[in-house]
Structures are given as C-alpha cells and as structure tokens.
Simulated scan of single mutants.
Amino acid sequence: MNKKLRGNLLLLLTALIWGTSFVAQRAGMDYIEPFTFNGIRSLIGGIVLIPVIFFLGKMNPADDKEESTEEEKKAENKTLILGGISCGVILFVASSLQQFGVVYTTAGKAGFITALYIVIVPILSFFIGKKIRPIVWLCVLLSLAGLYLLCMKDGLSINKGDFLVLLCAFGFSIHILVIDHFSPKTDGVKMSCIQFFVCGIISLVPMAIFETPVWSDILDCWFPILYTGAISCGVAYTLQIIAQKDTDPTIASLLLSLESVLAAISGVLILHEQISPRELIGCIVMFAAIIIAQLPSKTERLSAKNHE
C-alpha cells in the first residue's frame, strides 16, 4: 500500500507539472515551429537526466551486480533499450500531434480531448486482457463528465486541430500502456533518458525538412523550451515511468487527467484568472472520481485485515 500511495502521489505531481506546462507549450508556438520546439525540449529532457543517472549510480554502486549473470545483464540492457526506443517513438508521434493540434484549436478543447486517454486506456486495457473493476469504469465516466464541464465552453465540434489532438490522445494512451509493460522490468530513469533522446533525434529530421529554425527565435523562446524540457520532460515523464511501476494503468490515466484541473487551479492562484461555477463543478466531479477510484476493493480490504 505504501508503494501504491507513493506511485499515486508521484502521478499527482506529474499532473501538476503538465498542467502548468501547457501554457508554456502554447507560448512556444509564438516563436518557433512544432518539430523544432519538440526536438529541442526533448533533447534538453534527456540531457537533464544524465547527471541524475550518474548520481543514482554513485548512490547505489552495488545495484546487484554480483547477483546478475552476463545473460541476465544482456537481457536487462535489451529490455531497457527496447523500452526506451518504443516509448521515444510513441512520445514523438503523440507530442508532435499535440503540438500541431494546439495551433488550430483552443487550449480548453485541447486539454479536454488530450485527456480522453482516461477512456481510451481502459478500453485498450480490456482488449489486451486486463481486468478493470466496475467502479473504475464509473470513475472514468465521471472524469469524462467533469472534463467536459471544465474544458468545453462552446459545445462539441471537431475541426482540424481537434482531430490532431484526438489522435494524440490515442498516442498517449498507448504510451501509458507501453510504460506499464516496461517500467517494472527496467531502470525507469535510464529508460526515460533514452526515450527523450530518441524523441528529440527523430524530431530533428522533419525539423530539417519542413521547418526553418532561426537561432534568434529559439533564444527568444528560451523559457518555454527550458521549462518544458527540464521540468515537463526531464522531471514529469520520469516521475510517470517510476510511478507506474506500482500503479494500474487505468488509475494512472485518471490521476494524470487531473492536469486539466490543476491547470485551471494554477491559473486562478498564479495568474488570478476567474473560474466559473460550471468549471468549479467540473473540478469537483473529477476529484470525486479520483478519490472513488482509490478506494480499496473488497479483496484488498480482506487482505489488509489478514495482515493485521
């Protein structure tokens, strides 16, 4: 239960960082183009993690080296590289779609449609054989209703930007499930570092072909790039990988969807923005869904009693 609580808290922190970084992403589009922005911020995210990996290696020099055979080390490294590359490719696709999408739609709609992974993840999980408690399905529907109240102000309509962001939601759903598969099997920080370098390097190819990056514009955009690179990528995505070792992917998607709520709250506290009663109800409904989803099942309650 302690590991589960730690994982949930780390995912809440991840949602908080993503919620505040959405503004920085949109601000970046005023200076540079999407592939340039994603490429540079992803490479910054990977670079930030190199000293972290070195520091953790110094803190845990043994790391079970004596117990592992050569074959086990090779298998572990293969899993690490495969996981990092897989996550990096999927992250490139999802983040690029999102970055292009926000150019053509409103921030509220982009936030709502991106967070549709709260519905997509349990559906995909069901098809790959994962069991999902009925109460969690209810929480998914509650979160969806809360998101609608929070983000959607002009009703439902789909334009070019909305469609791109919808594709991005599928991408992030697959990203969550791939992390769920690899994170318990390998070093989360190293895998995160690889994923960012892969995402960044791939982004540089279409940047060179389709865009014309200008150094003065990149320098003018230093704060959005640095914030989203070091904090949103380097810190938040790494926390997600570490946290998902001990969290069900559907619960993880619910917790991460709070980025929309936390973005609204941070706007009120930091930017002194106004929040309408409708948006406040949406926040309350989403928080209620998260709390209900965290309630232990009958099996977990019986197990806890037995341990007592």
Rank of each mutant, 00 (worst) to 15 (best):
N2A: 09
N2E: 14
K4C: 02
L5H: 10
L10I: 05
L10C: 05
L13F: 14
T14F: 07
A24H: 02
Q25S: 07
Q25Y: 02
G28E: 00
Y31G: 00
E33S: 14
P34V: 09
T36C: 07
I40M: 01
I40L: 09
R41A: 10
R41Q: 10
S42H: 01
G46R: 04
P51F: 06
G57W: 07
M59R: 13
M59H: 06
N60W: 09
N60D: 15
D63W: 03
E70D: 14
K73V: 12
K74N: 12
A75D: 09
G83D: 07
G84H: 08
G84T: 08
I85V: 15
C87M: 15
L91M: 12
F92V: 00
Q98A: 05
Y104H: 15
Y104K: 08
T106A: 08
T106F: 11
A107H: 08
A107F: 08
G108K: 10
K109E: 07
I113K: 00
T114M: 09
A115N: 14
L116V: 04
L116T: 02
I118Q: 03
V119G: 07
V119F: 12
F126T: 15
G129I: 10
K130Q: 14
I132T: 13
R133E: 15
V136P: 11
V140A: 01
V140Y: 00
L142C: 13
S143L: 07
S143G: 14
L147Y: 03
L149A: 03
K153W: 01
L156Q: 07
S157L: 10
I158G: 08
N159Y: 05
L167I: 07
A169S: 15
A169H: 06
F172I: 00
F172C: 02
S173A: 12
I176Q: 11
V178K: 01
V178P: 04
V178N: 02
H181T: 09
H181G: 01
P184H: 06
V189E: 02
C193Y: 02
F197Y: 03
C199Q: 06
G200I: 02
S203K: 04
L204T: 12
L204F: 14
I209W: 04
E211F: 06
E211R: 03
S216T: 12
D217C: 06
D217K: 13
D220K: 12
Y227K: 03
I231H: 05
L239A: 14
Q240R: 10
I241V: 15
I241E: 01
A243S: 11
K245F: 04
D248C: 05
S257D: 08
A263H: 03
A263I: 08
I265P: 11
G267P: 12
L269V: 14
I270G: 09
L271S: 09
E273S: 09
A288D: 02
I291M: 10
I291D: 04
L295I: 15
E300G: 10
R301G: 04
A304Q: 12
N306E: 15
N306I: 11
